[in-house]
């Protein structure tokens, strides 16, 4: 398969994730959409890594995975902390956090 197909797929996944991030209002689902976008970028990185025959792309995917894990841990911690005080909260209510 040519890298073009992978790049196209990555862009489609990124587009779906970005649209979902803006459309959905549940913080949990928004986080899942962010994971989608990160995965789309990973697909693109691996495709370019193969195309350029460079291991650097795969190393970057490794770093993206670490960042995604850290982001999920902190994000879910925030969601749990907020939801414990007030359940059924949406992202619109969370705008109060922006000091």
């Amino acid at each position: 398969m040519s890298p073009n197909a992978y790049v196209l797929l990555g862009a489609v996944l990124f587009g779906i994730g970005a649209a979902g991030l803006l459309i959905r209002r549940s913080p949990l689902v928004m986080f899942m959409c962010i994971e989608l976008m990160l995965n789309a970028v990973n697909v693109t990185f691996v495709a370019f890594s193969k195309m350029l025959n460079d291991v650097g792309g795969q190393v970057v995917v490794f770093f993206v995975l670490v960042v995604a894990a850290a982001e999920v841990v902190v994000g879910l911690g925030i969601i749990v902390a907020v939801m414990r005080r007030r359940s059924g909260i949406s992202a619109d209510d969370l705008s109060l956090m922006k000091g």
């Binding site: 790049v7 196209l8 862009a11 350029l52 025959n53 460079d54 291991v55």
Partner: peptide, 24 residues
């Protein structure tokens, strides 16, 4: 749409750079 442009432009290399870290 951006992706479709990439697809139909048929670029073989995105940046022109070659391996700097190491080969696969």
């Amino acid at each position: 749409v951006l992706a479709a442009v990439t697809l139909f432009a048929g670029v073989d290399t995105a940046t022109g750079r070659r391996s700097t870290v190491g080969a696969l």
